[in-house]
Design a protein around this nucleic acid. Structure first.
Lengths: 243, 243
DNA sequence: AAGTGGTCTAGACCACCTT
DNA sequence: AGGTGGTCTAGACCACTTT
C-alpha cells in the first residue's frame, strides 16, 4: 500500500472554521444573530487572534457570516436586498432589477420522478412538493415556473397552505426550516413555447423562450430544490457576470 | 461643502496591492514569469511579511497571480485549461466540456456603431475589427459569432491575416498584446433563427436559439471585446453556477 | 470610555520544491 | 541545505459603534 498522498494536514484555522460552520448549521446562532466576539472565540478555541480571524475571514468570503466593524459578526441572512437578488438574474433591458410578484397556480404533494430523484439526490418515489407559479415583472407575466422540493429536507412543508407560500421562497426556507440556499447550478437552453407556456405568458405557441433548469443547494451542498423556468425575453434578459 | 465621508483611509496592504497590480499591468513581469520572493518584496516595500502576504492573497483571490508552495509566485496566464474554460459556458448534456473549433468566415476593419461605441467605451466611428466565425463542437456547428474589437486597445490587430486568428482568442490577446481578459458581462435572451443563423447552424428559420451578448473586460475593467453569439441548444446548454 | 472588528509588526516554525 | 510559500503567535495600535 502507498502512504496517503495528502497526509491529512489540516491547518488550525481550517479546523476552527469547520467547527464554526458546524455550529452555525446546527443552529447554535440563528441567522441574523451575533456570534461571540473575536477575543472570546479565540479564548474558547485556545488560538490566537490572527488564527481565529483567518477562519472568520473565510466564512466572510463564503458569505456565511457578515462582519460589522465596531458591532460584531452575525450569521448571514437573506434579508438584505443583495442576498435576495443573488439568485435572481432576470433584469430589464435598462438593467433595472425588480423583484417579481408571484401568483401561485397550485401546490401539490407527489412522488419523485427519475429526474427529480436524481437532481435532489433522493430515492425514486420519495415524497416531494411541487409548486407551479407565474411571476410577473411590472405587471407583465414573464416567468412560468415549476418547483420541486424534497419534503424530507423541509419536514411539514407539504402542509403549508397554498396562500401562505411567500413571494421570496429562499428567505422563507431559512426562517422556517433553517435551510440556507448557498449555491445553485443553472443550465439554460432556448425552446419554443408550448400551449401552456403560451397561455400563461401570453405569447404565441412556438415563441422562443429561455428554459432555465436550476438545482439549488444548501450550505452543505445538499440539493434542496429543482426549478424549471420558462422565460419571455422581450424586454428582459438573463444577466450574468463571468470572472 | 461637506467633508468627504470616506477620508481616504487606505490600508498599507491595499497600497502594496495596487502598486503590484500596476507593475503587472505595465508588463514588468510577463504572464507566467515569477515575481520576486515574499521576503524580497517585503523588504522592497518596507512592510512586514504579513502585510505583503495580505496583498498577494488578494491578488491570488482575484486570479491575477498564482502561488506555488516552495517555488514562488507567478503572474496568471490563460494557458491552464481552467482559465480557458472560465469564459466558455457551453457544455454538452452530459456535462462534458469540449473546446470548440472555430472557422473564421471573415475579419474586416470598420467604424464603431453606436452599440459598439457604447459597449467598448470608444468614440462613435472609432476604428474596430469585426470577426465573424462559426464554432463547432464534435463536428456540429453550434455557435454563430460576431466579435468586435477596439483597434486602439490592441494596436496592429487589424493587420492580422484572417488565417492567423487562433482558436482561443483570449490566450492570443494576452500573449500578443498583454491584454488579459479578467471579467465579462453576459446577457442572454431567446430568439428565433434568422436566415443567416439558419444557414450557418443548419437549423430551420425560426428555430429557437440562445442569443448571448458579451462584453469582455481587461484587468482595469476597460471593455475590450463585444461579442454576439447565437447558439443552438439541442444537445448542449449554457451552464452557470450561482453563489 | 469601553467594546467590537481591522491593520500591522516581528519573529518562530512548518510544508514543499530544488539543488 | 537553502529557498519558497503557509501557518501561528503575542502584542500594539487604529477605526468604528455604542454607552
Amino acid at each position: 500500500m502507498h502512504m496517503p498522498v495528502k497526509p491529512a494536514f489540516n491547518p488550525l484555522y481550517q479546523q476552527v472554521k469547520e467547527s464554526l460552520l458546524r455550529r452555525i448549521a446546527a443552529g447554535e446562532w440563528a441567522p441574523g444573530s451575533f456570534l461571540p466576539s473575536e477575543p472570546v472565540l479565540a479564548e474558547e478555541y485556545g488560538v490566537s487572534h490572527g488564527t481565529l480571524r483567518k477562519a472568520l475571514n473565510e466564512l466572510t468570503a463564503e458569505r456565511r457570516v457578515v462582519r460589522y466593524q465596531g458591532k460584531g459578526t452575525a450569521v448571514a441572512t437573506f434579508d438584505a436586498d443583495e442576498a435576495l437578488f443573488r439568485f435572481f438574474r432576470i433584469v430589464s433591458c435598462e438593467d433595472r432589477r425588480t423583484l417579481p410578484i408571484s401568483e401561485v397556480l397550485g401546490a401539490a404533494p407527489g412522488k419523485a420522478t427519475p429526474e427529480e430523484a436524481a437532481a435532489l439526490d433522493i430515492p425514486l418515489g420519495a415524497p416531494v412538493l411541487r409548486i407551479e407559479r407565474v411571476r410577473s415583472l411590472d405587471g407583465v407575466p414573464l416567468l412560468n415556473e415549476r418547483i420541486t422540493l424534497s419534503c424530507a429536507r423541509m419536514p411539514g412543508i407539504e402542509a403549508i397552505p397554498v396562500g401562505a407560500l411567500p413571494n421570496t421562497l429562499y428567505d422563507f426556507f431559512q426562517k422556517r426550516f433553517n435551510v440556507t440556499i448557498a449555491k445553485a447550478d443553472e443550465s439554460i437552453t432556448a425552446v419554443a413555447a408550448d400551449k401552456i407556456d403560451a397561455e400563461r405568458l401570453v405569447v404565441p405557441v412556438g415563441h422562443p423562450l429561455l428554459a432555465i433548469r436550476r438545482v439549488a443547494m444548501d450550505i452543505e451542498e445538499n440539493p434542496v430544490e429543482l426549478r424549471h423556468t420558462r422565460c419571455v425575453t422581450a424586454n428582459f434578459h438573463y444577466r450574468t457576470k463571468l470572472s
